[in-house]
Design a protein around this nucleic acid. Structure first.
Lengths: 224, 224
DNA sequence: ACTCCTTGCAAGTAACTACTTACTTGTAGC
DNA sequence: GCTACAAGTAAGTAGTTACTTGCAAGGAGT
């Protein structure tokens, strides 16, 4: 049986399992539920015609999501490198784009946070293929676009602060429905961008930045 | 039998269940495991002498952790209000204290992120008793200690950025073991504090960028 | 027709799930 | 010793879990 709605059964199983894993967690989602959500008869082992195990289904979904994510990341990198807008507007656009991306990939992010600790090889893929690349892209963007005459800074650390801040705003909103401190997206991004702009302009000689490692070796590190 | 090692069975059940829930998730932890971890005979229903259900055990653990957390919060508030150190040192101390607190309550935070979405009444307690209070405390501290002559700002939003940034740094380190971007705690806190200090001092970093730029349509912040 | 292969379902499997019941134990007060 | 009671255990309960097996329906190619 092939002409079922236009999407293959395998693709439907992956998509629905990611949705259910994201909502209920891996352990809290049964194979029967996944089958039923994908249009199969729940309780029959039809899932095992397409995947050898529940874990293999999770693995396939994670890997597929990551390959899609890197394609999206490549496009973002290209767009960011070509951007010529003023700093504040560019940072705001990046922050908004990051939030939209977090929302778009909410199931993947939920699974990453909730359950991926139990699957170390998937964790490793997510780290090297997705998260580390995003950090490197933002850090590189900062170095290229914000170093107008000022001294060099710890771009990787600044990128980590920015990404972490936006990611946690999404996470709290995802968990609680609304942000527990009742700060909406507009105020949040404005406050973040204000701080980043001020920090990048920063030639305030008030107290010197502690330089433990001026330019650590986390960009362009060796791959195995 | 009461004097068993110094801790009551009920307390041991709560502590071990929080540890296991944090590591494996609520659905991924069995009553049998909890009993065995608490020194009881796993598989016997001994847990039900102390709690009517697995969910009641989770609820008791969450509530107990929150009451302990608020006591700790009160002490932090008092210490912060009395502090008279320079801004940068105070902010650094707050950031470090926040990270230590996140690590100390790692099981609670893991459960909050992983499983509490399925228990809305516990989510609500955590939001109002813990998270909202922390945000209010930091926002109040900023308003009191950082408004030296400068104009008023959106303190709640700035506090949210700071807290979210630190929380996400802890979360990523907790999930991956080490931070996926290889930024250590020292560099991270330095970068964050630099940005906050510059943003708070910012009667220059903000005003010289905002007026002429064609900003996107998301700049209209409200202050509370 | 034939074989080969895929995809589905019904009906299982053994193991595990949260939870219960009946009973034993240790300890305390009188 | 006797009672009272909290706390532990063994051995269940009925239901659920991931996963398997037998079989049928349908193509595709020959």
């Amino acid at each position: 049986m092939s002409p079922a709605g236009g999407s293959s059964t395998r693709a439907r199983l992956i998509a629905e399992s990611m949705r259910l894993f994201g909502r209920q967690g891996y352990a809290g989602t049964t194979v029967s539920e996944i089958e039923a959500a994908a249009g199969l008869s729940g309780g029959s082992g039809s899932l095992y015609r397409h995947f050898p195990s529940k874990e293999a289904l999770l693995s396939a979904g994670i890997r597929e999501q990551i390959t899609q994510g890197t394609e999206l990341l490549n496009r973002i990198e290209a767009a960011g490198a070509a951007a010529d807008a003023p700093l504040r507007a560019s940072l705001t656009a990046i922050a908004v784009a990051g939030l939209r991306r977090l929302e778009q990939e909410q199931d993947f992010n939920r699974i990453l946070v909730k359950d991926l600790s139990l699957f170390p090889e998937l964790l490793d893929i997510a780290r090297t293929e997705e998260i580390a690349r995003i950090h490197a892209a933002i850090a590189g963007w900062l170095r290229a676009h914000a170093a107008s005459g000022s001294e060099s800074k710890d771009w990787a650390a600044i990128a980590t602060v920015i990404i972490g801040s936006i990611s946690h705003f999404w996470l709290l909103r995802d968990i609680f429905g609304t942000h527990p401190a009742d700060v909406d997206e507009e105020r949040y991004i404005t406050a973040l961008v204000d701080m980043v702009v001020a920090g990048l302009a920063g030639n305030e000689g008030e107290t010197d930045v502690s330089p433990p490692e001026p330019e650590p070796n986390n960009i362009a590190r060796t791959k195995e």
